[in-house]
Design a protein around this nucleic acid. Structure first.
Lengths: 245, 245
DNA sequence: CGCTAGTTTGAAAAAACTCAATTGGCGTGG
DNA sequence: CCACGCCAATTGAGTTTTTTCAAACTAGCG
């Protein structure tokens, strides 16, 4: 179905928080048409090499971007939660340089590039907010480079946990205990580790009393200490209103 | 000195190629004021945590962005060559989430954010071109995540060589033999390896006849085979005009 | 000529990986 | 309701990759 979506609401709330804009600046977003679709777990939504003409807005569930290596290994490049647009860069780079997949059952809205570009022409403030979102996405990738390139396994795992916790918290989705529907294989593919290593690292973090895991739910017991282990500094998420222009 | 720079030329030429725009669309860029400054080798130009009000345009030399870890290790996040703007994201994220340093003697132009933002308001086409540049930068970071996270040492080194060669070639700077003024320590910090490992890997690549290194100059003998070792696909650099909108 | 920064090599240690087997949870079909 | 099967988590053991440490070597420069 093609509908003038109330689904813009989640995007508006997101941009209000992340860019510190008022809802009135973003009213135009309500005009964006979208096709809403549900996906099962582990469905590939778009492929590296595709030319796309829509952006994907996550409404529900978790989504990831990834690239594969020739020998069939996978590197997850980032996780996305409701309110995120995993492929916003396709607005100006319509050829996908990576793939997108659901990692839980998920609901996504497909919004035509043409509509977003048109909106950007009419509303500079919204345009700047969207540009800013792509810049934060880039900042997250840079920090992953540092994380994967220079941190030992236990710090990497702690880091991704801190990031997910902080990002979910920023959009009001961090219940406690926090649901963490990510498999150990996915953590491994995200942090450049083997499944076995992830498993042992999680055990260690458990034994140190930093987290508890039961039935896909993760309880962060000691965020401060977890951040210390992770060398986690939330600066790169650019969430702090005091640091905005 | 604050001057209406002819230094815009290098930027214009760059955006012409990368965005497929005509020089007339970009005439406005000549209006950008800039402070030109020279730096020595290994000078830190801006620091993580700084709030900045200018962007840096590389006119000459090589520049890198990096983050440090608590124990004093360093991760280089990307390299920049003439025509690049290493911190274009500060337009909308004025707090630096990483540092910038010269890795050779370098000349940079400092361009005030206000002037660029003003230009973007007046010239949509230039604005889109700049947005696009930040998106390519993000794409490069994502590919580095895959590279560092999932490729063995010899593929990582081959990959960064292919990337530098291709990017230099794209702006007409890839002479043959190509000058590669990057130390083994910098390769190590870029690819998440130890200096020793980089040295041994370069030796192996040399022994396989893929490259020659003498006096800081690197000759790529067999780009095709090097790309194969690296699993290098230039798609992520988004250089191909055929793939543009 | 001696200093420095960078490169190179050997050897031992550490981190992480692979392989292989087992366990546990959960949904489905009988 | 139970058994089966599947996917994910877990554990042990041996191997590989990469790191660390230490020392020698080299080239450029004042």
């Amino acid at each position: 179905m093609l509908a003038s979506l109330g689904h813009a609401d989640i995007l508006i709330r997101r941009l209000e928080r992340s860019s510190g804009l008022s809802a009135s600046d973003l009213q135009d977003l309500h005009m964006l048409p979208a096709i809403v679709r549900e996906y099962g777990r582990n469905e590939t939504i778009s492929h590296e090499g595709d030319r796309v003409e829509h952006c994907l807005l996550v409404l529900e569930g978790y989504v990831a971007r990834f690239q594969d290596t020739r020998d069939g290994r996978r590197q997850i490049l980032s996780f996305y939660v409701p309110g995120d647009i995993p492929d916003l860069q396709t607005l100006h780079l319509p050829t996908m340089d990576h793939s997108v997949a659901s990692i839980t059952p998920a609901t996504l809205a497909k919004i035509p590039h043409a509509a977003i570009l048109d909106l950007c022409d009419r509303n500079r403030i919204a345009a700047a907010a969207l540009w800013r979102e792509t810049l934060i996405d880039a900042s997250i990738s840079r920090t992953w480079v540092r994380c994967v390139g220079r941190l030992p396994a236990h710090a990497r795992i702690a880091h991704i946990l801190c990031e997910l916790y902080t990002r979910l918290d920023a959009v009001g989705l961090a219940e406690d205990p926090i649901r963490m529907p990510i498999t150990q294989e996915q953590f491994a593919d995200a942090m450049g580790l083997s499944i076995v290593q992830v498993n042992r690292t999680l055990r260690d973090l458990r034994e140190e009393g930093l987290i508890t895991v039961q039935k896909r739910e993760m309880i962060v017991h000691d965020l401060t200490r977890l951040q210390k282990v992770a060398q986690f500094d939330p600066l790169y998420l650019h969430l702090d209103p005091a640091l905005r222009r």
